[in-house]
Simulated scan of single mutants.
Amino acid sequence: MNPRSISMPLSSLLRNGACLAISCVLFLPMAEANHQGHERHGGAVRHEVIGEGTPISGASFRVFLGAGKATGGVALEAGQAEAAVRTVVDTVTLLLARRQDFPRFDESLKKDALQQVIIEPTVVNQEGKAFPFLVVRTTQPGRVNLLISASHLTEQGYLNRPDLLAPVLAREFQWVVSKADTAQKPKTLSMERDLAGAPIRTDQDISSLTADERVRLLQSLFETYLRTVDEQKSLEGQPHYEIGTSTLVPPTQPDSTMKWYDIRVREALQMIVREPSFLERTPKAVRSLLNGKVWNVAFVKVEQRDWATRTRVLPEEKAVSVGAGAQRIQPAAVLINTYRTAAPEDPFYPDSRGLPMGALSVDQLARVIALEIQHNITKKSMSGHVAQDALTAPK
């Protein structure tokens, strides 16, 4: 079969409402519950697709049209549907031809991790928030589905432009690989914190503090609440970078790299709360470090992810009571992926100058952390892939 064809013309499928309702809808599982080893997901819901899908030469998965469940059953118009399928098929074909340039895509093919690509009018997560792409686990261990929003393809000018869509779609395969991974995840080590004794301050109080007072407050939080090491000790036994270079230095002790980056993070955080320029340009970062919203800033090694930084906020049900007033907070962890470089869309891309995160100077690192917090302390609160990870992560 030609990669651009399907078993029936899309226009015919979309015009034939009875066919869609009765005989042309397949049901594919969409993950909703936690993955239980090699058992099936409990309480999985069905994801409705149209027809038999479009095959792609060289790939084990097909491209399907979704039945528009998220939009109340409103399907795509025939022209838009055909263009979306053709664009995605051509984009995957382009990635296949250059798979050596896209290691995550190549890895997903070798692991047969992707079960289906499903194009929906709009893609929403289980909280109802819309996203351009979403990777969801299936009832089959080690396999996932990739959902693509047709409205996003249209709005961003990707229709009939596989050359533009290719690098964007390729980045989604880090999530395909990661979410398909059924290996045992490392256990998080508990970090002791004096929640009741943490001297967090209100935003109004913080605005009236001098630079020296902000630094002293931060140091008190280091002692009680704010941690600057990786809870999973992912840097144990790993090398560190010489500042300003890509040269890796072997560790002298198993924990020497952890201590190296612990010191650098603390120096960067002190710079953020001390220097007036940060209070002026990234005030949310300064406040979040002193009001309890951030309780962990650390370098990590996360090989399964291509991001340079990530902000992870605890869900509401895991909120903690902090300070003498027992203020309820959903604290965030700001993670810096030591061996990754910034992407052009990262707000701190110019500051990193193409260096790996672990090679940044203290002032560069301070700007990276401040911009990450400023832009993402609320945006990344249990949304998108972060929410789906929490909902469907292997135990």
Rank of each mutant, 00 (worst) to 15 (best):
A130L: 00
R227I: 02
S151G: 09
I373P: 06
K111F: 03
Q327G: 01
A332L: 07
D181T: 14
V176E: 09
I148Y: 02
Q364F: 01
V74F: 04
Y261L: 03
P29Y: 11
Q270V: 07
Q374S: 07
Q204K: 08
M357Q: 15
P347E: 04
N145Y: 07
M191C: 09
F105Q: 02
Q174M: 11
D389R: 14
A326T: 13
V294M: 04
A59T: 15
P344R: 00
T188F: 11
P276V: 03
A84N: 04
Q388I: 11
V368A: 02
A332H: 09
V177R: 14
N34R: 12
L114Q: 10
P132C: 07
H38G: 05
R214F: 03
L248S: 13
A150V: 01
H152Y: 14
G292Q: 12
R46G: 14
T252H: 14
L355V: 06
E372M: 04
S190T: 08
K293Q: 14
I56E: 01
A370F: 06
L169S: 08
T392F: 01
V320H: 07
A196N: 15
L335I: 05
G72Y: 03
A113Y: 05
T91P: 01
A33N: 11
E48V: 01
P315W: 09
R161S: 15
G51V: 09
E267H: 05
A285G: 07
L28D: 04
S23G: 15
R281M: 04
R4L: 14
D389E: 12
Y241S: 05
N34A: 06
T282K: 00
R274I: 00
E48K: 13
R137E: 04
K284V: 10
V294R: 08
A285P: 02
E280F: 00
E242C: 05
G58T: 04
